[in-house]
């Protein structure tokens, strides 16, 4: 074959070889077919570990129990027993872990009316559990006041403060 035909062919072959070499360097060693097969698991295996290392923020009520046993026990006797501490007090881990006890930032408690109304705005939907929760009309029931001014969220059935 003539030289002017072969030369571009060599160039193309050279480019392909370069791409293949670059691929060896760029593609991580653990990139390949996982347990779910090529169709569903063609990926970088170490990414699973990356996700497992993601920081946990919501610790659950058992985490609060040791220091705040009074509140932990009190709320257990009430209809609010099912509500996690962190649902109102905010995620515990950011504030508590990695800080010595005297330097801990305070948790931000959501005392807004809107927060209580998540459940206590009356929505009498016939096929929903929301029907059974007692509600108030926020426009008529002491508007502009925080619920916790009168009601104790840890002991909502004990009467007003």
């Amino acid at each position: 074959m003539k030289n002017h035909v072969l030369r571009p062919l060599f160039v193309v072959i050279g480019i392909v070889v370069l791409i293949l070499l670059a691929r060896i360097v760029i593609v991580p060693k653990d990139f390949g077919i996982g347990e779910r097969g090529y169709m569903y698991a063609w990926y970088r295996k170490s990414n699973e570990e990356d996700w497992k290392k993601f920081k946990v923020k919501y610790m659950g009520r058992e985490y609060c129990k040791d220091c705040h046993s009074d509140k932990y026990d009190a709320i257990k006797q009430t209809p609010h027993a099912a509500i996690q501490c962190e649902n109102c007090h905010g995620p515990a881990n950011d504030a508590v872990s990695e800080h010595p006890s005297d330097q801990r930032p305070k948790l931000v408690i959501d005392k807004s009316r809107a927060h209580c109304l998540r459940c206590h705005f009356p929505l009498p939907y016939p096929t929903s559990a929301r029907l059974k929760i007692r509600g108030i009309d926020p426009d008529k029931h002491n508007p502009d006041m925080e619920c916790s001014t009168c009601h104790n969220p840890h002991q909502p059935m004990e009467g007003l403060k």
Binding site: F31, G34, E35, R36, Y40, A41, W42, Y43, R44, E48
Partner: peptide, 8 residues
């Protein structure tokens, strides 16, 4: 690009 996948 194989960025999303299903774990075992």
């Amino acid at each position: 690009v194989g960025a999303t996948y299903q774990a075992a």
